[in-house]
Design a protein around this nucleic acid. Structure first.
Length: 456
DNA sequence: GTTGAGCGTT
């Protein structure tokens, strides 16, 4: 990542130190493009660190070797971590991408927010650069209302989603020798109805993802359980699962290409879960769930704990197991379990609520949304909910994720279930009755149709 | 006090 080349993180600075002071001090080493002292957004009080950007990155070497005292404090200069690095290095548990996620929502605009624009950039230059990705319909560079100084960011609008995706595929772009950061622009106007529910819900924790979330709303029911349990655990154990690697899901989240593999991979787990159903996949994983599957219908569900233990369990996915059980048992039982199962999924939160979908049902289709809902109410809403969700969900996935998913992950293969109804996008996943799990998938992603029919 | 924030017409 070259975007932050030439950028130094300066830690431990005095509260007296401001941008000008940093520039003055570090200016002795070379030309400074920019300095910034981070302050608390609300109070305006300096947070004790800042950044200095040299036009010539090679200057850093010299700077890094010396000790620096500014305004009476010995400060620490280090190479700045890119936001990306920061993200990944952060606790694995943190799915938040902070502001970055902001641009991704279920509302997809064809506009891109571009940050870090060089002050010298003209709209023509701006446009020319982005035209390489598609037809640019609008270009905007923002200026300070009072000073008329460039604010360092602007917008590019395209006429197709594809172009947007191409641009976003690369998080950083070089423009006039500096690099800029691109994000999907936040919708300027109010959110569409669906969103509200989104936000309300799961506040907790999934951060940006919530957006997808439709999950939010529904999640309530789960919230309680959402607990981190499964979640955390999953990560902890992550290590155990090589394929999925500790990298865990977290990363995945990013719809980003890079992770994709992983992300979905994880889904695989689900598949595993599927095992319960007899799906072959289980084996691969070692199949912890198997037990459940076969196990007595009612018993297991008593507690989460019980189910978790196994390898998968950890994964959280295991939850799926319950279903398995369900399958075996009487209808009623199934239902009950289902909810449980669902819940967990939801929790997983993986965002993908997709999982949720898992529940069988129905449609939960949508991402997150799915999750929550499903859990909550096994049936009905699902139906309707599904509808919408899918809509949105579909959209989502459709494009953006498309690549990411690489069909591979989902491959039917793993799930296998019956393939018949493939749902679409994902390849197949189909939801078939009982197996909610699978259904979920399908639903979520594919928008597939989950059949409710329990078949079995 | 030690790893950011910027989102709209020009």
């Amino acid at each position: 990542m070259d975007s932050d080349q030439g950028k130094l993180f300066i830690g431990g600075i005095s509260w007296e130190t401001n941008e000008d002071r940093l520039k003055e001090y570090f200016g002795q080493y070379g030309d400074i493009l920019q300095t910034v002292v981070m302050r608390d957004k609300l109070t305006g009080r300096p947070r004790g660190f800042g950044f200095v950007v040299f036009s010539d990155p090679s200057v850093l070497d010299a700077v890094l070797q010396e000790k620096h005292t500014i305004d009476g404090r010995t400060v620490e200069a280090k190479r700045a971590l890119s936001r990306e690095e920061q993200q990944t290095s952060a606790r694995s548990g943190n799915f938040n991408q902070g502001r970055n996620s902001g641009g991704d929502g279920n509302v997809r605009t064809k506009k891109i927010f571009v940050g870090g624009l060089p002050p010298t950039l003209t709209e023509d230059g701006f446009r020319e650069y982005f035209e390489a990705y598609g037809h640019v319909t609008d270009v905007v560079i923002m200026y300070d209302q009072n000073t008329q100084r460039p604010r360092g960011f602007g917008f590019i609008s395209f006429d197709t989603e594809d172009a947007v995706d191409r641009v976003l595929h690369k998080n950083f772009h070089d423009l006039d020798g500096k690099s800029v950061e691109v994000k999907r622009a936040l919708p300027k106007d109010a959110n569409p109805g669906g969103v509200s529910r989104t936000s309300s819900g799961s506040s907790g924790g999934f951060g940006g993802y919530q957006s997808y979330g439709s999950s939010g709303g529904n999640s309530n029911s789960y919230d309680g359980r959402m607990d981190s349990n499964s979640y955390m655990r999953a990560q902890g154990t992550g290590a155990g699962f090589p394929p999925y690697g500790s990298s865990g899901y977290a990363p995945c989240y990013g719809y980003g290409p890079a992770n994709s593999g992983v992300g979905y991979g994880s889904y695989g787990n689900y598949g595993a879960a599927g095992a319960g159903y007899g799906a072959p996949a289980g084996a691969a994983y070692g199949n912890p769930n198997a037990g459940y599957a076969s196990g007595p219908p009612g018993a297991p569900r008593s507690s989460w704990g019980a189910q978790n233990p196994t390898g998968y369990g950890a994964m959280g996915y295991e939850n799926a197991a319950p279903w398995g059980a369900g399958t075996g048992g009487p209808g009623s039982a199934v239902t009950a379990q289902s909810s449980t199962g669902a819940a967990r999924y939801g929790n997983q939160g993986y965002g993908y609520g997709g999982y949720g979908g898992s529940d069988e049902s129905y449609g939960n289709a949508g991402y997150g949304a799915a999750g929550g809902r499903s859990g909550g109410i096994p049936n009905n809403n699902a139906g309707s909910g599904g509808g919408d969700l899918q809509g949105s969900g579909g959209g989502y996935m459709g494009s953006g994720y498309g690549d990411v998913n690489g069909s591979s992950g989902y491959g039917n293969a793993s799930w296998r279930s019956d393939s018949s109804q493939g749902s679409g996008n994902y390849g197949g996943a189909n939801a078939n009755g009982t197996h909610g799990g699978q259904g979920g998938y399908g639903g979520g992603y594919g928008g597939a149709q989950g059949l409710q029919a329990p078949q079995q």
